[in-house]
């Protein structure tokens, strides 16, 4: 298997006011062509930074970002732009991801205008219309401006823009989180259909485990910039190995209140600027022992395709309390 994209020991830091915030701390991952990988994390987990790093929108401080075998850091501006034809991103807030002064049609057609400048204007319009129709929109919407569309249609247009240059990888950064439940389901279905049709690889980033479960066949869990667990969907949801994954699963609100006995876990009080010597989750972990605060747990392979960064995974602490 050759990887489509990969992060190798990636470190991304942000500096400001004399402090350093390590958003990603030695994160590695591999995305195979046509694969759908889910990334789960809460605020401050570094999941949006991960999306931006993969697309070369933020620079790596250490480690490498590879796409199609090429290291993004070594590419020149023009080469990087050409490579971007093969990737696309869909943001959380559909209205904000469109230029308020441009028509939807112009925005959706922009990647084509950049990467296929030889294409005649009429042909480009036709491609935009066809794709709008495929994403369930009236092609006449091409003449509208983003503020005239509500959230659902706007996100459909964002999907059309992401798909128009036939990319190999689409990154969805909380792409359905801002939508109403009834509309969210429509967009999830649309993404599933498009994936089946085009075989495009999907990196689906979300805080919502139920949504990720529907869209991703492999899931990676981030906490404070570190990968704490990565596993195939079935394994992760049925038998999580990391206590944080367990906590996330137990926290999903359920309609049957009795069934969701959310464990009482103290909230995160550590500053995002603080660097964790041991495990990042130690302060909130119900299973933490003294060594957890002293030694950073390595990401160990525990089963085919499943790895976890927990000193006590062998004891099955996370799995047992289910």
């Amino acid at each position: 298997m050759t990887a489509l994209a990969a992060l190798e020991q990636l470190v991304v830091e942000f500096r400001g006011g004399g402090r350093v915030l390590r958003a990603l701390d030695e994160v590695s991952l591999v995305i195979a062509p046509g694969e759908s990988l889910g990334v789960v994390g809460e605020s401050g987990s570094g999941k949006s930074t991960l999306a931006r790093a993969l697309l070369g929108l933020v620079a790596a401080d250490r480690g490498r970002v590879l796409f199609g075998g090429a290291d993004l850091a070594t590419l020149g501006g023009a080469e990087l732009r050409r490579l971007r034809r093969r990737m696309a991103i869909i943001f959380q807030n559909p209205a904000a991801s469109f230029d308020p002064r441009q028509t939807i049609g112009d925005s959706v057609g922009e990647p084509l205008a950049v990467h296929e400048p030889a294409l005649a204007r009429a042909a480009r319009r036709a491609r935009v219309a066809a794709l709008l129709e495929r994403t369930g929109l009236d092609p006449a919407l091409a003449a509208r401006r983003p503020h005239e569309l509500s959230g659902g249609p706007c996100q459909r247009a964002a999907i059309a823009r992401a798909m128009i240059a036939s990319p190999q990888l689409v990154v969805c950064d909380e792409a359905v989180s801002a939508l109403d439940v009834s509309v969210q389901a429509q967009i999830v279905n649309l993404l599933l259909e498009l994936r089946r049709e085009n075989g495009v690889a999907l990196l689906f980033i979300s805080h919502n485990l139920a949504v990720v479960r529907r869209l991703a066949s492999r899931v990676l869990v981030l906490y404070r910039g570190r990968v704490v667990e990565v596993a195939p969907r079935e394994a992760l949801y049925a038998a999580p190995r990391h206590p944080y994954t367990r906590l996330l699963l137990d926290s999903v609100p359920s309609l049957v209140p009795a069934a969701s006995q959310a464990p009482r876990v103290p909230p995160e009080t550590a500053s995002p600027f603080a660097r964790d010597r041991g495990c990042a989750f130690v302060a909130r972990c119900p299973f933490a022992i003294r060594r957890c605060a002293e030694v950073a747990p390595p990401l160990e392979t525990v089963a085919p395709g499943q790895a976890v960064a927990c000193l006590r995974w062998r004891e099955g602490v996370a799995t047992r309390c289910a």
Binding site: L57, G77, R84, I89, F91, S97, F98, E110, P111, V114
Partner: peptide
């Protein structure tokens, strides 16, 4: 703003 980021990500010079 995200729409500028979207344009950068699309490879617009």
């Amino acid at each position: 703003r995200e729409f500028i980021e979207a344009a950068v990500a699309a490879g617009v010079p």
